[in-house]
């Protein structure tokens, strides 16, 4: 019972925790200790980190299409400044 309540309470801080952003040091220690002993919360932390990793990876796949870029420069009347990409 006790453990369950703890998992639920601590869940609110896991986002800050993975950002290394829990200001209350005692709380940070408590989370660390809890995760060490609680397999479920360890999994939540790991999968939360992996979720963000996938978001970053997916972001890197999203590039500005050259046609969109050309139309942007045209619309802004900046065509003379459009740089040519090195990668052919």
């Amino acid at each position: 019972m006790d453990q369950e309540r703890n998992c639920q309470e601590l869940a609110a801080y896991l986002s800050d925790y993975i950002d290394d952003n829990v200001e209350d040091e005692a709380l940070c220690d408590e989370i660390e200790e809890h995760i060490h002993e609680c397999e479920n919360c360890q999994i939540v932390v790991d999968t939360l980190k992996k979720t963000l990793y996938l978001v970053h990876a997916s972001a890197e796949q999203t590039v500005l299409p050259s046609s969109v870029r050309e139309r942007l420069y045209h619309r802004l009347d900046l065509e003379e400044f459009i740089s040519v990409d090195d990668n052919s």
């Binding site: 639920q8 309470e9 869940a11 609110a12 479920n40 999994i43 939540v44 790991d46 999968t47 992996k50 996938l54 990876a57 997916s58």
Partner: peptide, 20 residues
């Protein structure tokens, strides 16, 4: 209150090509 996690599955070990 918090958004309580309900799905506890460790899928971190899945191969990269599956994840991505």
């Amino acid at each position: 209150q918090t958004y309580t996690p309900t799905k506890i599955v460790d899928w971190c070990c899945l191969p990269e090509e599956e994840l991505m």
